[in-house]
Each structure stands twice: as structure tokens, then as C-alpha cells.
Computed example of a mutant assay.
Amino acid sequence: MTGEQAVRCVEIIGPRMAVPIRYNDFSVFQSGLDDVKQAAEASTPETEFHYVSHGDEHRFRTTR
């Protein structure tokens, strides 16, 4: 999957938030996090993208 394909999946599903976490773990990946970021900036989804580095944590907020 490329970064462009990943962002297209997000556009189709339409979540409020996306946190790409599997972007360079395997040799079959076609692009890295920079490609995801670039594709996300060029797209127009309502989704808020959050980026974390390997080993970092992301805490999700609940919306009630």
C-alpha cells in the first residue's frame, strides 16, 4: 500500500481521526510515513490525522 492508497482508504471509511502506525515495518510496504503525510495534506477528508513515531504513544479522546 502506498501513502496515497492509505489516505484513499481513510477517505472511503471517513473516520474522525486516523493514526498511521504501520508504515515501514515490512519490506513489502511501498512508501513510508512521509508519503502518507504528503497524500493527507493533498486530500480533503474531514479526518484529523495524528502522527506518531515508533515507540511513541497516542491517547485517544472520548467524545460524549
Rank of each mutant, 00 (worst) to 15 (best):
M1P: 04
M1A: 14
M1R: 14
T2Q: 07
T2V: 12
G3S: 08
G3P: 08
G3T: 14
G3R: 08
Q5F: 11
Q5H: 10
A6H: 04
A6N: 06
A6D: 04
A6G: 03
V7L: 01
V7Y: 01
V7F: 01
R8S: 08
R8A: 12
R8D: 10
R8G: 02
C9K: 10
C9N: 09
C9A: 15
C9S: 11
V10G: 02
V10P: 00
V10S: 02
V10H: 00
E11R: 07
E11V: 08
E11W: 03
I12Y: 03
I13E: 00
I13S: 00
I13V: 08
G14Y: 04
G14L: 05
P15Q: 03
P15N: 04
R16V: 02
R16P: 00
R16S: 02
M17R: 09
M17P: 00
A18S: 03
A18V: 03
V19N: 02
P20T: 11
P20A: 09
I21C: 09
I21E: 04
I21L: 08
R22W: 10
R22C: 13
Y23F: 13
Y23P: 03
Y23H: 11
N24H: 04
N24Q: 04
D25Y: 14
D25E: 12
D25K: 15
F26Y: 13
F26G: 08
F26C: 10
S27H: 12
S27Y: 13
S27Q: 10
S27P: 11
V28C: 06
V28S: 10
F29T: 07
S31E: 11
L33A: 03
D34M: 03
D34I: 07
D34V: 09
D34T: 10
D35H: 13
V36Q: 00
V36G: 00
Q38I: 12
Q38K: 12
A39K: 06
A40T: 05
A40L: 03
E41S: 15
E41D: 11
A42Q: 05
A42L: 06
S43M: 05
T44N: 12
T44E: 11
T44V: 07
T44S: 10
T44H: 13
P45I: 04
E46D: 08
T47L: 01
T47Y: 00
F49C: 02
F49E: 01
F49I: 02
H50R: 15
H50D: 02
H50S: 08
Y51H: 04
V52K: 13
V52S: 11
V52R: 13
S53I: 03
H54Y: 14
H54E: 09
H54T: 09
G55A: 07
G55R: 07
G55D: 03
D56Q: 13
E57R: 14
E57I: 15
E57A: 15
E57Q: 14
H58E: 10
H58W: 15
H58F: 15
R59M: 08
R59K: 15
R59V: 14
R59A: 14
F60L: 11
F60N: 06
T62N: 13
T62G: 11
T62K: 13
T63E: 12
T63W: 09
R64F: 14
R64Q: 12
R64V: 14
